[in-house]
Design a binder for these strands. Structure first.
Lengths: 213, 213, 213, 213
DNA sequence: CATGAATGAGCGTTCATTCAT
DNA sequence: TATGAATGAACGCTCATTCAT
């Protein structure tokens, strides 16, 4: 707590600038390659100030990303509370909600992606566990609701379903955030169309795909 | 390739040792955090030698990973040539072939994963494009063969199918290579069982899942 | 002394706390390694306040240790005024008085020890001169009284006697304050026994030592 | 070992310069206040070089002082081997041998003094233990020889004798190396005279001092 | 050709001190 | 008067790279 007292006394506008610049730096370079020097240079503040605010580099990162973790979970909450949508509509909406988060917080999402396979981020296990755990739990609840509502067969292998949904949703967002990873695969369809297509796809599988219209 | 001439004159055994140690270092630390110092210390060779062989750090990485890229494509080739398997059996086999590659080349796969979302790897775009492009192409051909063989409906949205298959296969391998990312989602099923379950799942989708036995 | 005006207006209790914490810090880390940050953190006061009180780090140290110097001289004064003790009893009592001072002001004594051979303490020459000069003067007077009283031979080389007494007394206190410096030398005798033994020793020297009982 | 390989391959002249400059820096400022920057600036070499040689600041210090520790013990050895001197002549010679060491290695002795009461030197306990232990052992053997030779009474309290000799010898050298600590106490007698006077003094003690001539 | 000593920019971090509020 | 945010030089240390031997 003592660490952030100084920072929290700052004018909100300045707090925002500091966190934004730092987020950009971590998003561009990852944790270790991110440079405190560059951050303070861009901010036009003294190096010592940043250390007063956050204690050290790790403190800065943890503050910044720790506060953001909640944001990763929020978009999904809204959808679960929509009684008028059926399961596949909710899936579709979840895709779009994720994309909206990526649009609004592109750098936080980039940090998350870098953290996925780079072990050297501080608190990586905790942060990833929270985000991915929340996602998985959300999807599981969605599926279970779908079964209860008769929209999904009771015989569904819920674990596999969660796994598949999670995989496809992750990939959908990754491709959206880093288009170069979609290398030639998908048509440059607009976002909603792709979300709808994927949802339809997940409904029937490969062998039982209905005719396209 | 004047750069690699002196390296290629080395005894093959020594070449292998150099590349192996470097691969381990890049796999553990990524590109920028990897330390030439540590590599030559472990190898017991002079630092200057490594620079003579590869020019610089980037040259070392490009040589090493460039040679490895072909390895990423090989396992899939074998499966496409199996006339006695139907589409979903091939998918299942593809999963297992990928897992086998991860087993045999864990460090190359770790490098690939780190490269996915970290822009600072040299030739990243090219390497990723090659690997992912080959994967996508392979999957597309598999699907098209499946359609021709009547195992998949002609109406299938091939792009979406490729996308989904790719997503699930990637996630399958990532979870296999980095189990902590599977956070609580999947049961500790053995590899083959999970591959089979996923293939079955992809066949019928969520809404049309057959009863489990 | 404009510098200390605001400090002296503080409630005495607070003055004491400030000086005590600062003394601990200087005793633990010496002058340069002592950290104003740590001091104000422990005190819970603003950093600016300390600088208002004392101007700068050096001012704080000088105030603190300057006030303490008198304390270094006090214990000895008392002994000189004891008419019923002979010279060697006074020496013995001086040792014990020194030890008592170390017990009561361990941190001041630690500062003094650190200052002995570390040129970077502010006002070091003056402080050391005062303390050591007072000690030497005290010992000289003790010796001269002893000669006058016929307890010591008139032929005594007073300079050498002062030197030796000073050396032994210093070492006695140093070993008491920093036992690790006594490395294996002395038996774990209790304080009074050792003081008495040293006094006896100083009386007769090495060659003329009487039988031990 | 690996740490010092690079350094040991250097021309001896350069090795000497490096160690000399570093010794001066540590002698002037102690361990923590000593600045690697200043050392390399004075040497005109790159900062990285020093770290290649010794790994880190502590490694430099330990190398430098560790090698010097043997030098602290050497002068005493020579004296013990002189059969033609009696006990008090040996004491006198020991004082002078110590003074000679201080003359030849003033900066090492200054480091030793700073280390005495400053806990923050690396390996302080070990270095001090070695030096002081060797001194104490040397003095004890001297005393025991003196007793055997009948030059000292068999009833002598050896522990106290060692303690006193050690104290006086230390103080003698400290005053020689840091004259300001002798504040006004002793006359500016020449070295040999003072050594002789102290030895005489230790022989007879205060109460039994013979007439001065 | 191999070596490994030398380089120096850059890193994260600490610190006493200043000064507007 | 008390505050505490801001400062920026200095610290120990790492690194990929160069080049004389």
């Amino acid at each position: 707590m003592a660490i952030k007292k100084t920072f929290e006394n700052l004018p909100e506008e300045k707090q925002r600038r500091v966190l934004d610049e730092a987020t950009v730096e971590f998003a561009e370079h990852g944790y270790h390659q991110a440079s405190i020097n560059r951050i303070v240079d861009r901010l036009g503040i003294a190096k010592g100030s940043l250390f007063k605010y956050f204690g050290n580099k790790q403190g800065l990162f943890e503050h910044l990303f720790g506060h953001a973790v909640a944001g990763f979970k929020k978009p999904l909450k809204a959808i679960r509370a929509t009684p008028d949508l059926d399961f596949f509509e909710r899936i579709e909406q979840s895709f779009l909600a994720g994309a909206q988060f990526v649009d609004e917080h592109p750098n936080l999402y980039r940090i998350y992606l870098k953290m996925l396979f780079n072990e050297s981020f501080p608190l990586r296990e905790r942060f990833l566990g929270e985000i991915r755990g929340a996602n998985a739990k959300y999807l599981r609840q969605l599926i279970e609701s779908g079964i209860k509502a008769g929209e999904l067969p009771a015989s569904l292998d819920v674990d596999m379903a969660v796994f598949t949904l999670h995989a496809v949703m992750d990939r959908f967002l990754q491709g959206y955030a880093v288009p170069s990873l979609d290398n030639g695969l998908a048509p440059a369809a607009n976002l909603q169309a792709r979300a709808r297509a994927l949802a339809a796809f997940l409904r029937h599988g490969l062998a039982d795909a209905p005719s396209q219209e």
